[in-house]
Design a protein around this nucleic acid. Structure first.
Lengths: 240, 240
DNA sequence: ATATTTGATTTGTGATCACATATTGAGGCC
DNA sequence: GGCCTCAATATGTGATCACAAATCAAATAT
């Protein structure tokens, strides 16, 4: 009461972030950028300690992520980062084509000039990351690029579904090696996306997005079978 | 040790259901079948008392459902059942067409005879519910019918995405009145779906599913604008 | 009578505790 | 040496408590 009750009424601009939300975003981001290994086991208390928090927010963040199918839940309620199989990868690929193709077509109809400018800018940033073969930076710019395009479509729920599928691809990225040729090849698809958007060509945008997704899925599929062969050839190792 | 250590090793077939899972399913089911009004406010303690449980499992179930966008979260972290708008309904319609069309096509490729038998059976059950104008029974059989078809496609993640969109349609059903003509009309689409499946006609199955979804969306859209007009015409009432 | 403020209640969040079960590792028996 | 048993530890779940913030209602002032 003594120190100016009129000024600064508690002034809390620090955002309405609950601890749980922060933990949730951190784990989600870690998953999407491949900082967890497929098959890795996660414990509530372990993550709580790693994040400098108490078990409670971590527990609830993990349950939210489990609800999104990000983890495999053992019969004893233990959580494990899901492994990717070729079947699941194919499913994700097909559904991504359907969803992201739809969003790309819708985006064309609503696209404004400033949207295209920002999208082009993100595409350039991605090109730089590709030139420098900075894989993690490339990944994030890639997400931002697609997110920015789809945001134009104003389809909140569909966007959430798409991000959920991205979440499932994440752990795979822990396996990809820097490969300049691959990065440049995937930039071709991105350039075609931008061109189609600029031309207001819905079908072209859908086709370019489809190519991008198919290409990425093909690369990951090759990586998966290569890893499987490597694993089975050293099956005398510690783990089955 | 005394009572037969070999027989019945603790024999716990009672399912690994946690309280939270039960609460989650109950609330989800209530949402999908329209037992919550759009805009209804939900409190943790209130639901806990209604379900005869402690606040803890309810809290976590609600957070999982919030993560699926089933609720609107106010800036003060209070939960409210989302309202349906024509824009959101259009988005849900378009994305459902994309996702369920894909699943229907995939289902055709993997369909076995016993699948078709069960699907036909569910379609007949739905017909009975339609004849008796039992809306709530019709709704549930309808869900089971589509779920059973898409299950053939073996696309776990995509199926989860579809169910999530169904979840968003749920509260709208609290508004639909029993209307035999509408039910019978929507049964025509279902019959066509079964016929297309029996003929192993992927494109036909997709078309029939699309019609079904579009028809339902149209009905709900009409209902929404009718309700909006009714609400605005009594704007002298208690609430804005 | 209306608007504002103030106090009481409700509510969500996070921490700590209790408990049942699962996992792990060491030790003993064949 | 290999396999089983059993104790010790780790882990998820649920309950209770504490607290800050928001909501609601009554009471006061204008």
């Amino acid at each position: 009461m003594t120190d100016g009750p009129l000024l600064l009424p508690t002034l809390r601009q620090v955002s309405r972030d609950t601890l749980q939300d922060q933990v949730y975003r951190q784990i989600r981001e870690a998953l999407m950028s491949g900082r967890f290994q497929p098959g890795q086991k996660l414990t509530i208390r372990g993550l709580a300690e790693a994040l400098g928090s108490s078990p409670m927010p971590v527990r609830e963040a993990l349950q939210r992520l489990s609800a999104e199918n990000a983890f495999e839940v053992t019969e004893t309620s233990r959580l494990r980062v899901r492994l990717m199989t070729v079947d699941r990868l194919r499913e994700i690929r097909d559904t991504r084509v359907a969803l992201e193709g739809l969003l790309a077509e819708k985006a064309v109809l609503l696209l404004q000039k400033h949207d295209l400018d920002e999208i082009t800018d993100l595409c350039n940033q991605m090109q730089h990351a590709a030139d420098e073969v900075d894989v993690s930076r490339y990944l994030w710019t890639n997400f931002a690029f697609h997110r920015r395009i789809y945001a134009v479509a104003q389809a909140e729920l569909t966007m959430a579904a798409v991000e959920n599928f991205w979440l499932h691809m994440g752990p795979c990225f822990a396996l990809v090696a820097p490969d300049k040729a691959h990065l440049q090849r995937s930039m071709e698809a991105h350039t075609r996306i931008v061109e189609a958007l600029a031309a207001r060509d819905g079908a072209g945008a859908r086709a370019a997005v489809t190519d991008d997704i198919m290409q990425a899925a093909d690369s990951l599929a090759r990586l998966l079978v290569k890893n499987d062969r490597a694993r089975s050839s050293v099956s005398g190792g510690k783990r089955a």
